[in-house]
Design a protein around this nucleic acid. Structure first.
Length: 597
RNA sequence: GCGCCCGUAGCUCAGCUGGAUAGAGUACUUGGCUACGAACCAAGGGGUCGGGCGUUCGAAUCGCUCCGGGCGCACCA
């Protein structure tokens, strides 16, 4: 397996490498003084411009003070003879266009078939350790379509990096400490009290969703009235709620005070039972979340608990460390980190006046932990609303004498969902959001994953639910899957032994469509490497669309199962190679490849 | 106000490290199934790449500026 993989690598790079070497030789004789000029080779989009083009002559024009077309002519004249190149033309302002030997191009078919699911793998990452942290949504309710985007992106990126030769750890950071979890616990308890006939009003700023009622119901089933307390005790010392219509800051503050007082009462009244209620809500939501993601084809290697950072004392240790290094100071009773030293726009609190650590403090500890685990690269996938966070985290890492360059933050823009032409509400608290589960149910996992993968992650996404529901056949994912199913059908009717396809006579693949497809197959590894470097799995989606398009065009123009056995085998081999690359690409994107549809 | 992201066909979006006549899907018009799957193909119209200035052989791409949109600027998470 390993040597095949290695041989394919050298094979596929051969063409470009060989061309580069030929050009370097020509360059050394035409312009010895500029022999260090980097050779740039690109694939022209216009097929009449050949298979590869270089702008070398134009780059040299200024230094040599000569007409670029003249330089190009000289380079072509000095180009060593090679069986690889059938034509080298000077074109345009001074491009050199190379047309490759057909046989050199169709050799790729054999490589694809020989390497199978490993075709396209790269050694680019050098098996360095990289951590990809993504989703990391608060386990306070079901995942929504925004989380789905982060999940799809993170999962595809992780697969992509694995395919490109990285040793990837997929991680979910669980925010199981802090106020949001307390609010979820309280919400559950209030619903429980309600269901057990205790007259305590539910809160507008608690979690409204039906899943909270469901958790409360389960608690009743398992523990009866064990957690029931008197309404007067529950409400003792609370300021009460302002009128429901009021949305001013004062009303908001009062609601928050009321809620915090209820949490304090809950802890006092329930004692150890509060821990149970809190944990029950957490584990239920986390399990739901994990289940949802698994059905979406998204799996994690590590579920990392924020609470563990406190329990193991890492947060305290981390703050002490910053203190010792002189990056902290006390003001107004709170402890501040001097993030402005590292380019942040203002300093940040790590420990509040009341002694509690901020989220930022545990986040610093989390990053210290990541670095201590020895990753060569750490990728955080965050919602775009967290971008203001990057500089302070970078600052903290630098302050701890760690290499901030190892951390890369990929921002994912929000997915805005449209239903009936209207923006759908995305607030978790209001309980009116569209969940990832609903989306998957309506659109299907494959279309969902592909739709998310179909755009750059840092681009805003308009997700028209009605369109996705009513016109799923229009989704480009079916275009690619259809090409795959078509090929499966042809191969089945061909009824030969697929093992014999690697020895077909590929020189029979001579028409322009066939050669174009062969070139496209060669591009696959470049696409993988480029996408991995840019953290941009969407490039694979676009590549597969192109590849499928070229296949469909060829399929409609030429018959594969012709009488001439040699030609038939060569064409089936090319089709099988397309099928293999579609499989490999869709696997990275987490999309299935049905053999019939 | 400051910072980050974005502005490409009616709509949704690609466009690699600057390259040749800016692309795809969709929508619209037309044609193609007694041949391997028509969830497909072929052809056509559709553009001030938000505006301007600059860098250079060459700019959608890089820089500056203006306009327009999103997000962020907590002792919240």
């Amino acid at each position: 397996m390993a040597f095949r993989f290695f041989s394919s690598k050298s094979m596929a790079q051969d063409v470009k490498t060989q061309l580069t070497e030929l050009l370097q030789q020509a360059l050394a004789s035409v312009a010895p003084s500029a022999s260090a000029t980097p050779i740039q080779l690109e694939r022209p989009r216009d097929p009449t411009h050949g298979d590869f083009a270089t702008n070398l002559a134009m780059q040299l024009a200024k230094a040599l003070k000569k007409n670029p077309r003249e330089i190009a002519r000289q380079l072509v004249n000095e180009l060593p003879v090679s069986t690889l190149v059938t034509k080298a033309d000077v074109a345009g302002a001074g491009f050199i266009n190379f047309t490759l030997d057909a046989g050199a191009k169709t050799d790729i078919v054999k490589a694809v078939l020989a390497e199978g699911e490993n075709f396209g793998r790269s050694t680019q990452g050098g098996w360095q350790k990289v951590q990809v942290e993504f989703v990391s949504a608060n386990p306070t309710g079901p995942l929504h379509v925004g989380h789905g985007r982060g999940a799809a992106y993170g999962a595809s990126l992780s697969s992509l990096l694995t395919f490109a030769g990285w040793d990837v750890t997929r991680e979910y950071y669980v925010n199981d400490a802090g106020r949001q979890m307390d609010i979820l616990g309280l919400s559950t308890w209030l619903r429980y009290l309600e269901q057990n006939g205790v007259d305590v009003p539910f809160l507008p700023n608690a979690y409204q969703g039906d899943y909270v009622r469901e958790m409360a119901r389960q608690m009743s089933i398992a523990h009866g009235a064990k957690f029931v307390r008197q309404a007067a005790d529950v409400l003792a010392g609370t300021p009460g709620l302002p009128e429901a219509e009021r949305a001013d800051d004062e009303a908001k503050r009062q609601r928050d005070q009321h809620l915090d007082a209820l949490i304090a009462n809950a802890k006092a009244l329930l004692g150890p039972d509060w821990t149970y209620v809190h944990q029950h809500a957490l584990s239920e939501q986390l399990a739901d979340c994990r289940d949802d993601l698994e059905q979406f084809g998204v799996r994690f290697d590590v579920w990392f608990s924020e609470q563990a950072l406190f329990d193991t004392g890492l947060v305290a240790r981390c703050v002490d460390l910053l203190e010792k290094k002189g990056h902290l100071y006390v003001q107004n009773g709170a402890r501040w980190f001097k993030s402005t030293t590292f380019g942040d726009e203002k300093d940040r609190v790590v420990q509040r006046e009341n002694g509690l650590y901020t989220y930022f403090a545990s986040d610093i500890a989390y990053h210290l932990n990541k670095f201590e685990r020895g990753f060569d690269k750490v990728i955080n996938i965050w919602g775009a609303d967290h971008h203001g966070y990057i500089s302070r985290v970078n600052g903290a890492i630098t302050a701890l004498d760690l290499d901030a360059a190892k951390l890369q933050v990929a921002l994912v823009q929000f997915a805005v969902l449209y239903r009936n032409g209207q923006k759908a509400s995305m607030s978790t608290r209001s309980g009116e959001f569209v969940t990832l589960r609903e989306l998957r149910g309506e659109v299907g996992n494959d279309a969902c994953r592909f739709f998310y993968a179909l755009r750059k992650s840092d681009q805003h996404l308009d997700f028209d639910l009605d369109l996705a529901k009513s016109q799923t056949n229009e989704n480009p994912v079916y275009y690619i899957q259809y090409a795959h199913a078509r090929i499966c059908s042809v191969v089945n009717q061909w009824a030969g032994d697929p093992g014999t396809l690697t020895v077909a006579d590929f020189s029979l693949l001579g028409n322009p469509r066939e050669l174009a497809i062969a070139s496209k197959l060669t591009e696959f590894r470049e696409v993988i490497e480029n996408a991995a470097r840019e953290l941009a799995p969407h490039l694979i989606a676009f590549y597969l669309k192109d590849l499928a398009g070229e296949f469909h065009g060829w399929y409609n123009a030429e018959r594969m199962l012709v009488d001439d056995a040699a030609l038939r085998d060569a064409r089936v081999a090319l089709a099988a190679a397309v099928r293999q690359v579609i499989r490999n690409g869709l696997a990275v994107l987490g999309v299935s490849c049905p053999e019939s549809m």
